Amino acid sequence: MNSDAASDFDFFILLAKLKSLSGAARALDLTPPAATKRLGLIEQRLGARLVNRTTRSVSLTPEGETYLRYALQISGQVREMEEAISGARTDPKGLLRVNATLGFGRTTIAPLVSEFAKRFPAVEVQFEVTDRPVDLVEGAFDLAIRFGELPDSRLSARRIMSNRRFLCASPKYLERFGTPEKIEDLARHRCIIHRQNDDAYGVWKYMRGDSIEALKVKGTLSSNDGDIVLRWALDGHGILIRSEWDLAKYVQSGRLRLVLPETVLPSADLFVYYPSQRNQTARARAFIDFLVERFRAPFVPVEVGKKRGGRKSPGL
């Protein structure tokens, strides 16, 4: 296979993922007319139309679906062959597209991308942060960094940090309103609600044995931003669910106390997701290994089992 054919395969795979000629042109640093001409030359060589074009997007014809299937297979085999021969003695290189959540991506992952770029200068990293999970295949991302369970069964995942969730509140809130003695007491307390994606509003889940139970809570404050609701809890406005990553330093300093610490909540482990392990590039593997190394011990775990202050709930 000559280099022109290999380049055409990569171009068409990207076009199929983005469903946009202008998007493929931007990703490859081409002008839109150059991308259109390149597609035309491929179709002319094959004697078949590969895509249906509109002003906004493209869709694959049956011939285009066949071309994409073989292009993915052949391109993947070429990558595997090249990395098997030269991967052990060359540094990772090429384009790596990474997605992460908005706040966590900005404050935590972006500095790590900076470190990674210094270690692997031949890797070009395109880093995007979004408030909602993205479709890795549709968005042509190599990997995404997210808290929580696998969002799509088509993806593979690697856990890079264990991260338990806890109920918590400030000492001044507990001194004023009392400490819940059992999970049902939360229904009578002021709860701060973190609205996330499509989760049911004000419904908190917890484990009872092997089953997941749900409890309806209420409060006067809610937000879709984790830093905001944490600040409200520190200010004494109510009880909040937050992860160990967010809580550890405040629990250790005494600014927050665990509430019902023996209650087990669904965890918020940190994962890196990727479309397939079979054709994973050396640069993607290097980035994932780098993250695992950096998150090996990111905080001192929250200590569970010690009873902390507060009086019994008087019932609100």
Rank of each mutant, 00 (worst) to 15 (best):
L215A: 04
K172S: 14
Q77H: 08
R311G: 14
D185R: 03
L316V: 07
P301Q: 09
R154H: 08
L167A: 06
V229W: 04
D10A: 15
P33I: 12
S211L: 13
I228F: 12
E138R: 15
I183H: 13
A5H: 03
D4Q: 12
E149H: 15
D8S: 14
H237I: 01
C168S: 13
I85S: 04
K37W: 05
L291K: 08
F104L: 14
R231W: 00
R69V: 05
I74C: 07
A48W: 00
A35H: 07
I239R: 10
L316H: 11
T61M: 04
L14V: 14
N197M: 13
A27M: 07
S267Y: 06
V229Q: 02
K19G: 03
G76F: 06
E65K: 13
A187T: 14
G105K: 01
G219M: 05
L95Q: 10
Q277C: 10
R146F: 13
W245E: 05
P92N: 02
S57M: 02
D91W: 04
I288C: 04
R26Q: 07
K118G: 09
R119F: 01
L260N: 07
V302G: 11
R89H: 03
F271L: 03
L316C: 03
L112A: 05
I145N: 03
G94W: 05
T281H: 14
K307I: 11
P92V: 04
N2D: 12
G178K: 12
R159E: 11
K216A: 14
E262K: 09
T108Y: 00
I212G: 07
R308G: 02
M207I: 13
P298K: 05
D227E: 06
K312R: 13
P266S: 01
K306H: 10
G315F: 09
V125C: 11
P111G: 01
G202S: 05
V251R: 10
A100L: 03
A117R: 15
M1N: 07
L112C: 09
F116A: 03
D4F: 07
R188L: 12
A16E: 09
R38S: 03
